[in-house]
Structure formats: C-alpha cells, structure tokens
Design a protein around this nucleic acid. Structure first.
Length: 256
DNA sequence: ATGGTAGATACTCTA
C-alpha cells in the first residue's frame, strides 16, 4: 500500500498535474494540503474518474485539506473536535484499510513572536491532544502533511542560516517534537539515513534552481506501521513542470 | 540585498 502527502498549492490549478501524477505514481492514498477552495468547487468528479474517492474540507482562498483514496474512506474527521465553522481548515482524519490517517496543514507562523506564530504553536499542541484523545500508539496510525517545520539540520539547505528562523526555530521544533513523542517515527529518515533531501523550495529567488529547499513534508507512523514500511521517497518530478506547486510529493510504501 | 514569485480575491493578503 502506497500512501503519499502533497501540498498542491490550489487543487483547481494543479488538478491536471495531480491526475497525471496519480496515474504515473499510482498511490493508494494521497493526503493533499492547500486545496484553497470551498467544498462546492472541489474537483471530486475528475478525481473519481481517475479512480480516487475523496474526503475534503476547504475554505475560500486559504488552507484546505483532502484525503484521496482508491479504497473506502471511513470514520472521517473534519477539523478538530469542537472546531466551529470559522476554524481554519487544516486537518482531516480518516481510516483506510485499517490505518488511521491524520492529514495536516500546519500553520506557517509568519514570523517569530507574532500572533500567527503563537497560533502555530498552539495548533500543534491541539494536534498532540487530538492524538492523545483519539489514537492508539499501539495501533497503525499515520500522521502526514505539510508540517512547516524542519526537524533536523539535514532537513534544511542552510542550517546555520536558518538557526532561530521561521521553519527551524527551537519553539517550532520543540512543538513538533512534542507531537512526535506521542509515539511516531519519521519513515523517510528511518529508511534513508541522514541524507539531505528537500520537499519544498520557495518560488522566489531561484530557490529551486539552487536547491535551496527544506524538508517540511513528512510521513510519521507508529511502530507497528514502521515495521511494515518498505520505502519512502520524495518525488521531485512534478517540481520540474511548468507552473508547479512549490512542494514535491512524498510517498511511502507499506507491506499492507 | 528585507528582495524575489505564485495563488485567490478584488485592488491586498498569505505563503
């Protein structure tokens, strides 16, 4: 079973690339972030024609997450329990083939010390609470998405320059580590050692051409699922296309 | 060098 995560930066702009990638890569499940559309405009029919059913929760202009799957999508959770209609649409959970999947678009944080930065840290604590309240660390649980945090030096093209900066600051890494301490392990890092590969390159300043990237898109799993992990790769191929997303998909394969 | 580009919306905000 192949499970992928991809921040597409507008699903309606990216739908041709997304469908082409689904047919080429053949993932069983894809967790999508930054759909940037209301549910009425989600391209559900096009995806169904490509063989994927979808669960999604979006809003106008910003955020929005979805789970696409070849298999039935069960027990869907849209946002955190208790979220009202105004809450930012950044989390969707569902069960596929017995695996509990939580797909997140972690807040960017804007700049250290800002209200948005505090929102990011608070949001990550809510995410950990959600795991504590609803997930079993001894079961097959998968957390993935755009975490907007690089966890280790190898995840950042210029770790010295990023020290104390957004995406790599101590409070962000600590908050994300707290989520990980639920009992999750980074599939990419476990299987590939301390390589330095990235999943996101800023559109600006020629970051892609210079490989000035960050690995901020992750697939984290509980130990029972980690034992079944065969491979985890970052597929850079869509990043070479014209009008790409700024993120590349990450895909993990499990013997399940 | 505090820029650069992309997307959605409506002439700016977010990333």
């Amino acid at each position: 079973m192949k499970i992928a995560t991809w921040n597409v930066n507008s699903i309606n702009v990216r739908i041709p690339q997304l469908v082409e990638w689904l047919l080429a890569a053949g993932p069983d499940v894809v967790c999508v972030q930054e759909t940037k559309t209301i549910d009425e405009n989600f391209p559900e029919i096009v995806l169904a024609e490509a063989g994927y059913q979808a669960a999604f929760t979006g809003q106008k202009s910003y955020n929005g997450v979805a789970i696409l799957s070849k298999f039935p999508i069960e027990d869907v959770q849209l946002g955190f329990p208790g979220d009202d209609d105004e809450a930012q649409k950044r989390m969707i959970g569902a069960t596929v083939n017995g695996i509990r999947i939580v797909n997140t678009y972690v807040p960017n944080g804007s700049e250290l010390g800002s209200d948005k930065f505090k929102f990011k840290l608070d949001w990550l604590h809510r995410l950990r609470s959600y795991f504590d309240e609803t997930c079993d660390p001894n079961g097959d649980v998968l957390l993935c998405g755009d975490f907007n945090v690089g966890m280790e030096a190898e995840d950042v093209w210029n770790p010295a320059g990023y020290e104390g900066k957004l995406h790599f600051s101590k409070p962000e890494r600590a908050a994300m580590h707290y989520v990980k301490q639920f009992g999750l392990t980074d599939v990419f890092r476990d299987l590939n050692g301390n390589v330095s590969e990235f999943s996101w390159w800023d559109y600006r300043a020629g970051a892609w051409q210079k490989n000035h990237g960050l690995r901020i898109d992750y697939i984290w799993v509980t130990p029972t699922l980690a034992e079944k992990a065969k491979s985890c790769v970052i597929d850079k191929s869509p990043r070479y296309l014209d009008l790409p997303s700024d993120h590349a998909p990450v895909i993990a394969e499990f013997t399940i």
